[in-house]
Design a binder for these strands. Sequence first.
DNA 1: TTGAAAGCGATACCAT
DNA 2: ATGGTATCGCTTTCAA
Lengths: 349, 349
Amino acid sequence: MNRKATALDVAKRAGVSRSAVSLVLNGRGDGNVAKESQDRIRQAAEELNYSPNAIALSLRNQRSRVIGILADEVVVSPFDGNIIGGADDVARSRGFVTVVMDTERDTARDASAIETLLDRQVDGLMYVTVGLKPIDVPHGMLRVPSVLANCYDNHAQPQLHHVIPDELTGGREATEHLLALGHRDIALLGGSEDSPAARLRVQGYRDAHAAADAPIREDRIFMAGWDIDAGYRGTMKLLDGVSPADRPTAIMCANDRLAVGVALAAARLGLSVPEDLSIMGYDDENRIADTMVPSLTTMALPLREIGRTAMTKLLDAIEGTDAGKGTTAETMVPCRLVTRESTGPAPTR
Amino acid sequence: MNRKATALDVAKRAGVSRSAVSLVLNGRGDGNVAKESQDRIRQAAEELNYSPNAIALSLRNQRSRVIGILADEVVVSPFDGNIIGGADDVARSRGFVTVVMDTERDTARDASAIETLLDRQVDGLMYVTVGLKPIDVPHGMLRVPSVLANCYDNHAQPQLHHVIPDELTGGREATEHLLALGHRDIALLGGSEDSPAARLRVQGYRDAHAAADAPIREDRIFMAGWDIDAGYRGTMKLLDGVSPADRPTAIMCANDRLAVGVALAAARLGLSVPEDLSIMGYDDENRIADTMVPSLTTMALPLREIGRTAMTKLLDAIEGTDAGKGTTAETMVPCRLVTRESTGPAPTR
DNA sequence: TTGAAAGCGATACCAT
DNA sequence: ATGGTATCGCTTTCAA
C-alpha cells in the first residue's frame, strides 16, 4: 500500500529534471536529452517500477482515454456481454479503457449514469442494449462522440451512428435454409410482438416464402414470447394430437431457448429430430445451441462484431482517424447461419 | 460538444472567487460565505449546469472513488454478471464507480489489467470468477485494499478477504430435499472433477446420505461435465434399458444445464417428471430454471449477495468504516433452495 | 467574509 | 542539452 513512484522520484534518482524524464519516456528523448541521461532515466524508471499516473495525464491532456458504456442489462444477459466484450477488445488494443454502467433496464437512470460518466471526462460514449430496439438518446450523449450498439435512435432525425444486426436477412436466410431442405410447412415461434428484432425476423420468414413461391399458413405463426416454456407450449399446440399429414415438418424459432422448448415437446411426443421435425434456432446462444441434443442449427447473432465495429467507429471519430466522414449513419452486420444437427431434409409423405 | 462549465465559470458568473464556490457547493458555506453570495453561487451553478470534474477531484484528493473489478469471464457468462451487478449496486449507492476489466480466462492478462487499473488510481480492487476456484492473487492487488469474490487465495497464508458461496451446505440441502421426498436411490451428475464447487457439492451429497443413514451407490455418481449434452448422455447411461426397479428415482445435477439434458433424456424415454423421476438442478440460472418444463427445483447460488457483500467489505476497508477489523478472512454466503415442479415424492414400487 | 496561493502529477514551452 | 514554469480543475490553508 506504499504510494507509487512519480516522475519526480525518477528524476531525482536519475539526477535530472522532471521534463527530461517526460521526454525520454515518451520517446522524444533523442536530440533533446543526452544518451547517458536517457539510460539513467530509463533504468531509474525500471527500478522504481514507474508508470505515469493516468489521472494526472487525463487532467493535463484533457483526454482520459476512457470510453463510457451504458448498458441495458448486462447483468442477467450473456448477450450484452458479448457486445461489450468485442467493444472492449478494440478499446484495449487502442489504449483505451471502458467503464460500464448498467441501468438494469431502468431508463430513468440513463441520464444520471451519463452525467457520472461525463464528470469522469470520458472521451466517448456507447449505448448497448440486449435486444435490438429503438431508444431515446439521452441528451448527454451528444456532448461527446457517441455510438449506439444494437439499438437505434428513436428520433426523427437520428444524430448518432448505430451498429445493428441484419435481422431481416437473418430471418430470411434461416427460412431459406429450411426451404432448401425441402420443407414447405414451416411453423414459426416468433418471439414477442413488441420486439423490432422479432418483427424483422418474421418479415424475413415471409420474404423467403414469397421469393420461393411457398404459401404461408398464418395459423402456423405464434408470437409466443422468448422462453423455454413458450416454445414447449407452442409446439404442443402445433403438434399434439395432430395427424402426421397435418403437422408442420419444421419449426423455426426466434431464439434458442424457444428451440429448447420445442425439442423438449418433440421428445415428449415421441418425434425424432430432425427425422420427423426440423428445429431452427436463432442467436447461437453460448452453451445452449452448441450443447443441445441434438445440437441446434441456428442463426448466429454477430454480437462480438457489433461491439467491435461500434467501438472502432467511435474511436475513429475521437481520434480523428475518421477518413470516411461521409459514411451512412447505420452499419448493418450480417447474421451467420450455423448448421448443426437439428435440421434435416423434410420427411417424405 | 462544448466544454463543461468549471468552478471558475461559476465563480465569475456569481461574482465571487473559486474558493467560495468550492465551499458553498460542498456544504461548508455557512459561517464562511455570505448568505447572498451563497444564493448567487448556487444559482449560477444551476444555470451553468455545473458539476465538478471528477478527474481533477481525484488528483486533488488522491482518491478516485473508482473500484477496479477484474473478471474471469464476464463476457460469456450470466453468472459473473450477477456478482458484478450486486457489487456495482453497493458501489453506486456509496458514490463509487466500478471499472470492469475482463481477462477472458487468460490469467496472463491479470497483471497488466491490474497495472492499468492501478495507474488509474483505483481506490480498491475486486477479483471475480465465474465458478468457485482458487487463484494466484496478482501482486498488484496487495497495493490497494482488495477483496476476492467467488474465489479464494491459493497461497498458504491468504492475505485477502474472500466471499464465497457455501457449496457444501448447498449440496447437502439439495440432497436432503430429495431424501425428505422419500428418494433413496439418487443419482448424481456432478460437474467436472477439477472444480472445487463440484467437489463440495458432491461432498454435501455424501454428507446428507451419511446423516440419513442412506447408502450411496458409487456407480450412480458421474463427473460428467457441465453442459446439456453431458446431462443427456449421463441420463441415458443411468436409465436407458434399465428395468424400472433398477432405476434411480431422482437425479441431482451440479447445475441447471445438466438438468435440462436430464429432462430431455427423460422425455425421450417416456418418463414423466417428477412422477417417474425427480430432477434437481443447481445455480437457479436465469431464464433456464424458472422457464423449463417442468420448471426446475434448484439450489440458487447467491451471486448477487456475494457481490454485495464483497463490495461492502471492500468499501468499509477503504473508508475506514471497518468496525469489525478482526473479522475472519472468509465470508460464506448460504445457497437457497428454490422448490419448483421438477421434484416430487419418490414413486412407490 | 473574501480572495490569493500552494499543491496533486504530468507535459510542453521557453529560457538558459 | 537542460531545467524552470505555466497549465489542467479543484480543494484547502492562510492572510487580508
